[in-house]
Simulated scan of single mutants.
Amino acid sequence: MGCAISGTTPRTAEETKAEDAVAHLNEEQIQMIKESWKVIQEDIAKVGIIMFVRLFETHPECKDVFFLFRDVEDLERLRTSRELRAHGLRVMSFIEKSVARLDQLEQLEGLAVELGKSHYRYSAPPKYYSYVGAEFICAVQPILKEKWNRDLEEAWKTLFLYLTTFMNHGYQEEENCQNHTAVSPKDRPDKRNTAL
């Protein structure tokens, strides 16, 4: 469900670049991502936990977004946290859906935009989105072992660039919608008296 005022907005240069990048993933790169996902999927919960523990180690400020983990300093406690496992699985589920939609860019874009909107409602700002992709890549390298290479890394980076760009778009769209609806009609400037 969207905001009535949001409508369709023109693409930013960043969105066009991200869309072009994914649109130009060749069939071989798409297959590489899909094949690597089959291996990653076998350890999906482990990857989710590793990814978030690394995220909190490398970017402790990210914990501020997570009420449950905000004050947890003990990494072992984080590794065994049911809540962290559940959140990691939700993120991995999103990645799984993204991989499944690599051949359907419109659906993939919509998925990322909606996730960005929900992150606005959770007060999780876009400045953290790219960190997750970087930590995902670090978490899957040891699992993929000899299958990991520079080409596969570039393919995953391209996918995460695309996802984070459209998540950011969704976040901004939701923020604009909420800011617009937060201003009551009597508080809005009178357009008839505004000089051009």
Score class of each variant (00 low, 15 high):
2 G>Q: 09
3 C>R: 03
5 I>M: 10
6 S>G: 11
6 S>H: 09
8 T>D: 08
9 T>N: 10
11 R>A: 08
13 A>C: 07
14 E>H: 07
15 E>S: 07
18 A>Q: 02
19 E>V: 06
20 D>Q: 14
24 H>P: 00
25 L>H: 03
25 L>A: 04
28 E>V: 14
28 E>N: 11
30 I>H: 03
31 Q>S: 12
34 K>Q: 15
35 E>P: 02
36 S>Y: 08
38 K>G: 05
40 I>H: 01
40 I>P: 01
42 E>C: 09
43 D>Y: 06
47 V>Y: 01
47 V>C: 01
49 I>T: 15
49 I>V: 15
52 F>C: 06
53 V>R: 05
53 V>M: 12
53 V>P: 07
54 R>W: 06
55 L>C: 10
55 L>N: 04
57 E>L: 04
59 H>F: 13
60 P>I: 02
61 E>R: 07
61 E>C: 05
62 C>S: 15
64 D>C: 07
64 D>I: 00
66 F>W: 09
70 R>H: 13
71 D>P: 05
72 V>A: 04
74 D>N: 15
74 D>E: 14
74 D>T: 08
79 R>T: 08
79 R>D: 04
79 R>G: 04
79 R>L: 09
80 T>W: 08
80 T>R: 14
81 S>D: 04
83 E>C: 02
83 E>H: 10
85 R>L: 13
87 H>G: 07
88 G>I: 03
91 V>M: 12
94 F>S: 14
96 E>M: 04
96 E>D: 11
96 E>T: 06
97 K>T: 10
99 V>E: 01
101 R>P: 05
102 L>R: 05
102 L>E: 01
103 D>Q: 10
107 Q>D: 14
108 L>W: 07
110 G>L: 02
110 G>H: 02
113 V>E: 13
113 V>G: 09
114 E>F: 00
114 E>K: 09
116 G>C: 07
116 G>Q: 02
118 S>G: 03
119 H>A: 11
120 Y>K: 14
120 Y>G: 09
123 S>K: 11
125 P>W: 04
126 P>M: 03
127 K>E: 07
129 Y>C: 01
129 Y>S: 03
130 S>Q: 13
131 Y>Q: 05
132 V>T: 12
134 A>K: 12
136 F>P: 03
136 F>D: 01
137 I>V: 15
137 I>R: 12
138 C>M: 13
139 A>C: 01
140 V>R: 07
140 V>P: 06
141 Q>R: 15
142 P>E: 00
145 K>V: 05
147 K>Q: 14
147 K>C: 04
149 N>F: 01
149 N>G: 12
149 N>R: 08
150 R>E: 13
150 R>S: 11
151 D>G: 00
152 L>E: 05
153 E>C: 09
156 W>T: 07
157 K>G: 01
158 T>G: 11
158 T>E: 06
158 T>W: 02
160 F>G: 04
161 L>S: 12
162 Y>Q: 00
162 Y>F: 15
163 L>G: 00
165 T>F: 03
166 F>G: 05
169 H>F: 12
170 G>T: 05
170 G>E: 08
175 E>T: 09
177 C>R: 02
177 C>H: 04
177 C>E: 03
180 H>Y: 15
180 H>R: 00
180 H>D: 14
183 V>R: 12
185 P>I: 11
185 P>E: 10
186 K>N: 14
188 R>F: 02
188 R>D: 03
189 P>R: 11
190 D>P: 01
192 R>P: 02
195 A>I: 11
196 L>N: 13
